[in-house]
Design a protein around this nucleic acid. Structure first.
Lengths: 149, 149
DNA sequence: GACTATTGGGTGGATATACACCTAATAGAG
DNA sequence: CTCTATTAGGTGTATATCCACCCAATAGTC
């Protein structure tokens, strides 16, 4: 309408084109789907991701895990502690540099992760399958671009 | 490697192709960008989205807002209460059906939202501009598909 | 070796999110 | 009109997330 600042975008435009809202909405939805899939093995989606990150390298540090997942370091600290309390991972001080704490899966953690992998593939295939192959590839590239900002 | 269960996906494959992890990573990154943009006006990204949802319809209910944003109803309740405490919105019981609570922006809420709109456009354009136009369109479609699951 | 800067990490607080469970108001069946 | 089902919503709990601030260990300088 006239009378409002012409420099301001209309509310309809914002609601339609807000990337933040779209990504957050999708994030909640996909997180819930993976939570449901992992519930029988007692994990949620980020715990699965964290277990994966712990196994990805040899004894990754808190900082390495946080950087890899793009989360705040203190968030990684607190989430790792929960997995540690449940006995799925171990954190131990590095021998050379005593500031550093390195993570590793316990035997139980490996078992839980193995049990989760089949469920992961099912739900990941299901979600990916709802997109056309070229759309999935484009989505991955776009998400990576956004994540690196 | 041979020796592991052939039915299990390799850890490398999982790390590379996990849609949940990618979406969550992008969600954290973009949320942080919008948080930074809105910080000068005292909002964060979801508060902005919530204010937008409150103005989108005439006096939307808690359920309507939660459905529109794909968030849990109880999450909407608690987030709305924070905006209410700050005096940015008002919740009032519907005259016809006293179970229903309808939301509306206060004058201060409108001012804050107006101040945020310019910042929104800057950061939304910046993020969208890092993608090619057809990639952005494809991203929007893919995110909507995922959100509707 | 002492002083300072850098780095790895933790704590406390505010808010974000969802689940299990609950209350209150309305709607519908008889 | 009463009883029950449905619907709108809230509370408590556990965990997720980030920020401001802190501590301890190492590295670098002299």
């Amino acid at each position: 309408m006239a009378g409002t600042d012409a420099a301001l975008p209309s509310l309809e435009l914002v609601a339609r084109s807000c990337l933040c809202r779209r990504v957050q909405h999708a994030s909640r939805a996909i997180g819930k789907r993976f939570d449901d899939a992992f519930r029988p093995v007692g994990l949620n989606n980020w715990q699965f991701t964290l277990l994966m990150a712990v196994t990805a390298e040899a004894g990754p540090t808190v900082n390495q895990i946080a950087a890899e997942l793009g989360m705040d370091r203190t968030t990684a600290t607190k989430n790792l502690r929960i997995l540690e309390r449940r006995g799925l991972i171990e954190m131990r001080v590095d021998a050379q540099d005593r500031r550093i704490r390195r993570s590793a899966l316990t035997a139980e953690g490996q078992q839980v992760l193995q049990a989760a992998l089949l469920r992961w593939r099912q739900v990941n295939d299901a979600v990916g399958g709802s997109l056309r192959p070229e759309q999935l590839a484009s989505l991955n590239a776009a998400l990576e671009t956004i994540a690196q900002a």
